[in-house]
Amino acid sequence: MVTHRDDLASKTGMWLFLFTELLLFGGLFIVYSVYRYRNPIAFHQAAHELSVVIGTANTIILLISSTTIAMSITALQTKNKKLCLLLMGVTILLGLAFLVNKYFEWGAHFREHIYPGSSVLALRGHGDVLFYGLYFFMTGLHALHIIVGLVFILVIAVSIFKDRINSENYVLLENSGLYWHLVDLIWIFLFPLFYLIT
């Protein structure tokens, strides 16, 4: 059976989608900059309450997971299916580890009654409400992207296992990798903006 295939078009479509994602988060970064400019003291103090240790750990976890998914493409290109699936599995585990850290991080905030709409947070003033509103929305939207990325990678891994995706036809693996790297890319900016710049 002759099936038509156009890898370049497939990848172009993926990149165009990634651009819309960049603009989505870009818009949020603008909101963050303006609110930070208008509430410098509240943002400064609120940022001090985030754990730099957990943030750094999560950054390194995501960087390693990006490396493993990138390496899985090399593995499939060189017809090493087993290593490819292993690397994809490691990527998924690291993504889950990121989410577990996030769960504990958010859990700690919730115990201190810091969450959007909390009356305790409202008492702390307008700047804190804005900071934590943006913090929960942006890291939450990012975490949602992590979940989507994990499902995407899992679906591709199943296809590779069943040989529907192989060393001759792996543009979908590349596209899932691109999505995962985008998630990493966004975190590269979220991390300093929320955790480091105080």
């Binding site: 890319l185 480091l196 710049i197």
Partner: peptide, 16 residues
């Protein structure tokens, strides 16, 4: 912090 984030992004975009 932003310059370093920019350098990191360049590596991710170019290589990964």
């Amino acid at each position: 912090a932003l310059i370093i984030a920019g350098i990191k992004s360049t590596f991710v975009l170019a290589i990964f």
